[in-house]
Design a protein around this nucleic acid. Structure first.
Length: 503
RNA sequence: GGCGCAUUCGUCUAGGGGUCCAGGACGCCGCCCUCUCACGGCGGUAACACGGGUUCAAAUCCCGUAUGCGCUACCA
């Protein structure tokens, strides 16, 4: 039998990292077993579901590289793949349950149910449905139906004849045996009074109809499994295997949510995280390959994947480790492949929309200059900002710079630098840069920090940044590319002198 | 409250009775490299929630307690 798994998102916004990880585990499992990965959209909550959200979620999944074999957009032999389009299926199964006497019409209104629930809780009894409508005489039911009274369909948990009939034990592939007693459950709704089916019911009908063999989902659904297995049994259907993966927590150990900062896949994408890194990190939250290697591709993870190795405890999402991992991926990525993303970051003001070949070449070189410590692609663009933004007055005012500039010798050096740049031209490669540094060393007698810091401040505007021997030549050559409007080293140095003498 | 799940360094985890006075990774600290910030290299800090069992032997098995989380809806 071939493995069939599904990821079943509710289209209520962007895909979140928790959902992404569930999708990843499903995808990994399917790929490992040469099985089928299915996307099913759970949109029975009409108030919250939108088609726009569905498209966003699908797009997030594509971005992660988790492609599916069957789904709402690509179709498949067991469609449709949107629950809102499968109403007939639910209605048929509900009718079957009603005919079998397992489901029954419940005419109670929400207000009285709520009242009974709180009364039961106050009395210390379990807040289960009190079976009023289960015990309704046939004539009474007919009268209600004839009168056109609205009713919900309720599933009866078997208990009176056989105490154990409502008991359920599953052998969760991640957690092992889990058992529930039938009497811990009250009769539950499967169809709302407006005819819309409830999640726990749809899931069973769909998973059966779609021939799902393994249900891999978040832990929050673990206790729902009790109800679901009861429905499988009532309908005489084979129960699939279950695997409940733990939740992802925020730093305060509560379930990860918006207040923990970015939680949607799209937000991380916008922040300069790479999809491969995201998949890798999320997989690592709960799974480790047998060899313990922490950096791995989707494909190698798929090769090694097994649910037995999935950790059952909840995991805290660690932005620092994620950033580190993303940095590892950035280092491995060819500069040319980072070009578009970085250029996007650079072109915020809009003057880089149409880039020349020379501009692209220059940016690729610039990426190489700063990518070493980068943890996010957006950070690369940020670190390149000093090329494009130059404000001598602000540089002089900056405290760390002012401290260096307070040394009179520093200004003398910058003066010498300006003269040398004017006489010999700015360095265009590291050899020329070293020659420049040697000349300045001789004329000023300065060396080390005393030599380099003023140069750094006068040209790059800060006491720290990429290495001068590469940055300075790059700046000079960048200043020759018209669309960049980069201020050349000589001009920067002159402006610095003017600013410094003013104060 | 009831039911269920979970519990190894700050965090992610390895570990499935002896090879563990517990290994790796991120972070943190120190040293080296160095014009700076990073990167990189080297070293260090730090954990089996608690209490009972079982056993010659327990991080590993069982029970209880505590804590955290989930479910307990005509949400998913």
């Amino acid at each position: 039998m071939t493995v069939r798994v599904r990821f079943a998102p509710s289209p209520t916004g962007h895909l979140h990292v928790g959902g992404a990880r569930t999708a990843i585990f499903n995808w990994l499992f399917a790929r490992h077993h040469d099985g089928t990965f299915i996307i099913r959209v759970e949109d029975t909550d009409v108030a919250r579901s939108t088609r726009e959200s569905e498209e966003m979620v699908l797009e997030d999944l594509r971005w992660l590289g988790l492609l599916w074999d069957e789904g709402p957009d690509v179709g498949g032999p067991h469609g449709p793949y949107r629950q809102s389009e499968r109403m007939k299926l639910y209605a048929d199964s509900a009718d079957e349950l009603l005919a079998k006497g397992i489901a029954y019409r419940c005419f109670c209104d929400e207000a009285t149910l709520e009242a009974k629930r709180s009364a039961a809780e106050e009395a210390g009894r379990p807040p289960h449905y009190d079976l009023t409508c289960y015990q309704l005489p046939a004539e009474e039911i007919q009268r209600h139906v004839a009168a056109g009274d609205l009713y919900a369909l309720r599933f009866h948990v078997p208990k009176e004849k056989d105490q154990a009939a409502g008991d359920v034990t599953i052998h969760d592939l991640i957690r092992g045996a889990v058992t529930w007693r039938g009497d811990s459950l009250g009769d539950f709704i499967i169809l709302r009074s407006d005819g819309m089916p409830i999640y726990n019911f749809c899931v069973v009908v769909d998973d059966h109809d779609m021939r799902i063999t393994h249900v891999i989902r978040a832990e929050e659904h673990l206790t729902n499994t009790h109800r679901q297995v009861l429905i499988y049994r009532a309908l005489g259907w084979e129960v699939p295997q279950f695997a409940h993966v733990s939740l992802i927590l925020g730093q305060d150990r509560s379930k990860l949510s918006k207040r923990h900062g970015a939680t949607s896949v799209a937000a991380y994408a916008a922040d300069g995280f790479l999809p491969e890194a995201m998949v890798n990190y999320l997989t690592l939250l709960g799974w480790t390959p047998p060899d313990g290697q922490e950096i791995f591709s989707r494909d190698s993870a798929a090769r090694e994947f097994s649910l037995e190795r999935v950790h059952a405890a909840a995991a805290v999402f660690d932005p620092q480790k994620f950033a580190w991992l993303n940095g590892q991926y950035i280092q491995k990525t060819a500069n040319i492949d980072l070009l578009d993303a970085v250029a996007l970051g650079l072109s915020a003001p809009g003057w880089l929309r149409e880039r020349s070949a020379a501009a692209d070449e220059w940016i690729v070189e610039a990426i190489e200059l700063v990518k070493k410590g980068a943890t996010q692609v957006t950070g690369i663009a940020l670190q390149l900002a000093f090329f494009f933004e130059w404000n001598a007055a602000a540089v002089v005012r900056e405290p760390a710079n002012a401290e260096v500039l307070a040394d009179p010798g520093a200004l003398g050096l910058i003066q010498a630098l300006a003269e040398d740049l004017a006489a010999n031209g700015a360095p265009r490669d590291s050899d020329q840069y070293h020659a420049l540094a040697d000349r300045l060393k001789q004329t000023t007698g300065r060396k080390g920090k005393g030599l380099f810091m003023p140069i750094r401040i006068a040209t790059m505007g800060s006491t720290h940044g990429p290495e001068l021997q590469r940055a300075l030549p790059l700046m000079e050559r960048g200043s020759e590319i018209p669309e960049f409007k980069i201020v050349a080293p000589l001009e920067r140095t002159r402006q610095m002198l003017a600013e410094a003498s003013r104060s």
